[in-house]
Nucleic acid binder design. Structure first.
Length: 319
DNA sequence: AACCGCTACAACCGCCGGGCA
DNA sequence: ATGCCCGGCGGTTGTAGCGGT
């Protein structure tokens, strides 16, 4: 309480970012890596709140972000995960490395929720559109569920997620969208739908500018980022990074902590996987996901808890 | 051609949790 | 052990663009 605002509101510019501001931000991050957001406005001269800078970077400028046109596969995954995890967008986003939580959240609110609503109106089953069965209610559990309960939930989530993934994958025989790292990067620059606003293309250009910077060979951005985050404060980490690199994954495994559906846990386990990590080595996300979720060695005996989470009726009906 | 409503998405706000002194 | 700082997260709002009337 009484927490001072992160920025002096009067001195902070609000509203849409201009290309110039984006360039300033990108240039700074190119040099220093993401992180230490507090210092960004000061060092760049941007009249923006540090939070705003971070958000702009993570949601828009960060390379490797795919925009628009959610594939059917992605939709399915989102629907499944939303049913499983509720509105834990960051956790959901961790399964869709190329998407930001904001994007997914928006997509859910604008497309999927409506779609489900229509479905439930027409089909009766298929989950309550508003937040999904697990949605509204489940989200609350994050806040109110006692620790033990949370732990059980986590196990259930893992189990159910694995199940859901099987379903999702079996629903669509077509191979999961191979998400080659570099393709995702270039897609951020080039694959944006033409429907994007004019300015989107300038952002793409910025992303393109970054390509050289975050090229693995150079590793400059990553190195810088890592250095920054470890030297000062681990930051700029996106939960999406959790499934991005084998390193992260193995860390999760070896650490005994699966890429938990809980966003907070995910992030806490992947602090070094900064946004840069997400960009530099976006691996075959789905294969990672599959291998984890489908790994039979993980989590046993929680079948009885399946009831805890109320999945959507039949996801296949959704499509 | 003008107006209106809807949609999609970028951005903001407030709260929470982790790390550190 | 405690308080503060900072970053992350989810909910909500604002607004530009688009289509229909």
């Amino acid at each position: 309480m009484g927490r001072p605002p992160c920025c002096v509101k009067a001195e902070v510019k609000k509203g849409p970012w201009t290309p110039e501001e984006d360039l300033m931000l990108v240039a700074y991050i190119q040099e220093h890596g993401p992180g230490n957001w507090r210092a960004v406005p000061t060092n760049t001269g941007l009249m923006r709140c540090s939070k705003s800078c971070r958000l702009r970077w993570t949601n828009y400028l960060r390379p490797g972000i795919k925009r628009g046109n959610f594939s059917e596969q992605e939709e399915k995954l989102i629907v499944h995960l939303q049913a499983l995890l509720g509105n834990r967008w960051a956790a959901i986003a961790s399964y869709l490395p190329e998407r930001t939580d904001n994007d997914i959240k928006n997509y859910w609110n604008t497309h999927l929720k409506k779609k489900l609503k229509k479905m439930s109106a027409g089909g009766g089953e298929g989950g309550d559109g508003e937040g999904g069965g697990a949605g509204g209610g489940e989200v609350k559990t994050r806040a109110v569920a006692p620790k033990g309960q949370w732990e059980r939930r986590l196990q259930t989530d893992i189990h159910t997620a694995r199940q859901a993934l099987r379903d999702a994958l079996s629903l669509d025989p077509s191979p999961p969208p191979a998400k080659p790292a570099l393709e995702s990067v270039s897609s951020a620059a080039g694959a944006a739908p033409s429907s994007q606003a004019a300015y989107a293309s300038s952002a793409e250009n910025i992303a393109r500018l970054l390509e050289g910077w975050m090229r693995p060979g150079g590793d400059a951005g990553c190195g810088a980022a890592r250095k920054t985050t470890t030297a000062t404060t681990p930051s700029g980490s996106r939960s999406s990074a959790s499934v991005l690199s084998g390193e992260a994954a193995s860390a999760s495994h070896s650490g005994g902590t699966a890429p938990t559906p809980d966003g907070s846990t995910v992030t806490s386990k992947t602090k070094d996987e900064t946004a840069c990590g997400a960009v530099a080595a976006p691996p075959p996300a789905f294969s990672m996901l599959e291998s984890w979720l489908l790994d039979d060695g993980m989590g046993h005996g929680e079948a009885g808890l399946m009831d805890v989470v109320v999945p959507l009726g039949d996801p296949s009906e959704f499509f």
